[in-house]
Amino acid sequence: MSIKMFEGFKFTRLSTPLHNLDPRAKFFLTIGFFAIALLFQNLYALLAVFLVQLPLVVVARSTRRWLRSMKGGALLAVLIFVMNFITGTTFAFSLSMTIRFLALISSFSIFFMTTSPDDLGLALESMKVPYTLCFTFTTAVRLVPTMAVDAQTVVDAQRSRGLEVDKGNLLKRVRNYVPILIPLIVNAIRRSVELAEALESRAFGSTEKRESLITLKMRPSDYLTILATIVFVTAAVYVNLYIQLPTLDIPIKMPHIWPWAS
């Protein structure tokens, strides 16, 4: 368990074109990436979805943290590749699914790295989501880094008492996580009770209609982003329906070892 991975999903206050974009426009863009990535199964198309995001990462000056989220996802990516491959799909398809996964994480990483939890809350509110729900959501996002630090401390404390997480057979290893998960959960519950009490003592929910110091306003660049997303998604749908994309033909396939795989 490492704190580093979460860095790739944590907001850092910077002033870049991407950070300054309206959260709703950015959310729309993220959903756009999401949709295109799910639309295609073609390796080249998915690779394109992934590569198109790289300039955005550079513009947002977050390359190092983005790489952390990629590194964090690497293990799962390998797992996805291996699981696909051994269950009888082709090499190219397994690779596609892995790239799709990376493209999805990358788009989320970019969104969360460049959007402050406050902005996110405002965006949700402006979309008429009830305030208590917005608040719950933004608090949850905000607590992720705190929980990550907590997790590291718990691991350290238990290791100091002789716990060796990576020792033993599979069952033992799973059981090794009990001394780590219980304190984490207990702490999370304690913290949320304390937070609720603190909120109530500051009159949370006393007014029905809230006003906000900052109101979100769409600027030309935001409309441009939304327009660009629409154009790209439409183009992607068109390509997917009417254009035959080249495929990668590597005739490597696992031998049939599973009775259900054909």
């Binding site: 100091s160 002789g162 304190p183």
Partner: peptide, 19 residues
């Protein structure tokens, strides 16, 4: 684990270890 047998470290917050 091996050093810990010689060096016992007690953390500040007991809630980080009780389970």
């Amino acid at each position: 684990a091996s050093i810990s047998r010689d060096v016992g470290l007690v953390f500040q917050n007991p809630d980080h270890q009780l389970f």
